[in-house]
Nucleic acid binder design. Structure first.
Length: 338
DNA sequence: AAGTCGTGGGT
DNA sequence: TACCCAAGACT
């Protein structure tokens, strides 16, 4: 595994080449948080932006929180950004500005769970740790042909992983397994003939490696409906700040009424106006439900304190989550006659 | 401990 | 198109 990694490691901005000194723990941590459930291609530009703007824990701990949330916009799972700030503050206030050096102490920090604690301990601090992400879960399930379905198989997969993690270079070992899972041991049509582990792989021997890991069936996503209220006044649009927790928590947003099982129409507008519904709708898919948004437009002739007025021409810099950026673009297109 | 929490790319 | 999936954490 390590020999394969030495020859095939991906070159990534947050990664040291095999054999070179470990990278800055701050950069390892930031990349690990950004990469949670998020692709390398998506993370790459955001990582560059964050490290340029906030190069270390001290800078991030002192950052304006709204600015951090704005910078995170579009990455999704916004609790990660809230915990990012909280973690930087704890590290600065209680750990002298540097990470604690043990996996257990890392695990206790906001936003750092089992996977991320093990990843930082092994990659940044050179400790032996059992790193298990979705890639490694899949690789190990195939190596040992683990028949038990996820998520019940997690303890067995972790125990199996523990048996093959070396005492030295466990960080490179983990990153090698992740690169292998990303490029060779893929969810569908794995490239077993190119795999350095194929002769040791029970899944390959079974003739159906793609059958692993076994997964439980997923529930269907319910459909919900809502309305976006586009309040415009003198070239500015009304934006609001969403509640600090929950869906899109803490993010700047376009006002919406309630989200319900049926289209709510013009219920609960953010401010009084002569609201009219545009023809089309905007659809968006979240992790556990689908959302269809009707688009309501109201032109105001007087000020409202219901939120923050933002220049329409600069809406792209407001840091809106994708669902609102999408709705805003649709409304502007409709109003301009496209 | 099952549900909550985004988004974009691949197929 | 519709579905799968991703360097998971938190409650």
């Amino acid at each position: 595994m390590l020999a394969w990694y030495d020859a095939h490691a991906r070159t990534l901005p947050w990664r040291a080449p095999p054999g070179e000194p470990a990278p800055d723990p701050y950069r390892v941590w930031l990349s690990e948080i950004m990469l949670q459930q998020t692709t390398v291609a998506t993370v790459r530009p955001k990582f560059a932006l964050f490290t340029a703007r906030w190069p270390d824990f001290a800078a991030l701990a002192a950052a304006d929180e709204a600015e951090v949330m704005t910078a995170w916009a579009g990455l999704g799972y916004y609790a990660r950004a809230r915990n990012l700030i909280a973690c930087a503050k704890v590290v600065t206030a209680r750990h002298g500005g540097a990470f604690p050096g043990t996996e257990a102490a890392l695990r206790a920090l906001p936003g750092i769970g089992d996977y991320t604690a093990a990843a930082i301990a092994s990659i940044a601090f050179g400790q032996r740790a059992v790193v298990v992400d979705a890639n490694i879960e899949r690789v190990v399930a195939r190596l040992f042909a683990i028949d038990q379905p996820l998520p019940a198989a997690r303890p067995a997969i972790r125990a199996a992983a523990d048996r093959i993690v070396p005492d030295m270079r466990s960080g490179d070992f983990a990153q090698g397994l992740m690169d292998l899972g990303s490029g060779i041991c893929t969810p569908r049509a794995p490239k077993c003939l190119a795999c350095p582990l194929n002769h040791d792989c029970a899944g390959f021997a079974s003739g159906a490696p793609e059958a692993y890991p076994v997964k439980a069936a997923k529930a269907a996503k319910p459909q919900r409906y809502g309305t976006i209220f586009w309040a415009e006044r003198q070239g500015q649009v009304l934006l609001v700040r969403r509640p600090p927790r929950g869906l899109l928590g803490g993010m700047r947003a376009l006002p919406t009424g309630p989200w319900a099982d049926a289209a709510p129409g013009l219920a609960d507008p953010p401010t009084a106006a002569d609201w009219r519904l545009l023809g089309g709708t905007v659809a968006h898919v979240f992790t556990h439900f689908r959302l269809e948004l009707a688009l309501a437009v109201g032109v105001l002739d007087r000020h409202s304190n219901a939120g923050e007025w933002w220049p329409v021409a600069e809406l792209d810099s407001a840091g809106l989550p994708t669902v609102f950026a999408k709705a805003g673009a649709a409304i502007r297109a409709a109003l301009s006659g496209d």
